[in-house]
């Protein structure tokens, strides 16, 4: 299994709305496209600093990701929620991770 880890940086006042969009719009689109929804985590919005929200999707291998990618970019809803989340983000990263053999989540 491999994982796509999106880390979004948002203003604390936007954190709840960002997570709402992930839950109500991104998860339906990405899971319909074939990705697994693994987790969505956020740092505390009460520390006087930017909130980091990490969303993790899973896929079997890069052939499967290629299919998922096709399905998501052919779904008009993907463009809609992408625009909404982009407006709320101040920065962030996307990285692909591949589990170490001893990892309990492999």
């Amino acid at each position: 299994m491999a994982y796509v880890v999106d880390t979004a940086h948002v203003d604390p006042v936007d954190a709840q709305e960002y997570m709402r969009i992930v839950e109500t719009e991104a998860v339906p689109v990405m899971t319909a496209a074939g990705a697994g929804f693994v987790s969505c985590w956020g740092t505390s919005p009460e520390l006087g600093e930017e909130v980091w929200i990490e969303t993790v999707w899973s896929f079997a291998d890069h052939s499967e990701w290629n299919q998922i990618r096709k399905n998501m970019v052919l779904d008009p809803r993907w463009y809609q929620y992408s625009e909404k989340t982009a407006r709320l983000r101040t920065g962030g990263t996307r990285r692909f991770f591949y589990a170490a053999p001893f990892s309990p989540l492999a």
């Binding site: 979004a8 890069h62 998501m72 970019v73 993907w78 929620y81 625009e83 989340t85 996307r94 692909f96």
Partner: peptide, 17 residues
């Protein structure tokens, strides 16, 4: 993997970068 990891990072609509 270079396509998904590196190129798409700057191009796909849902990518933070």
């Amino acid at each position: 993997p270079f396509h998904a990891n590196i190129l798409d990072r700057y191009l796909l609509n849902d990518c933070p970068e």
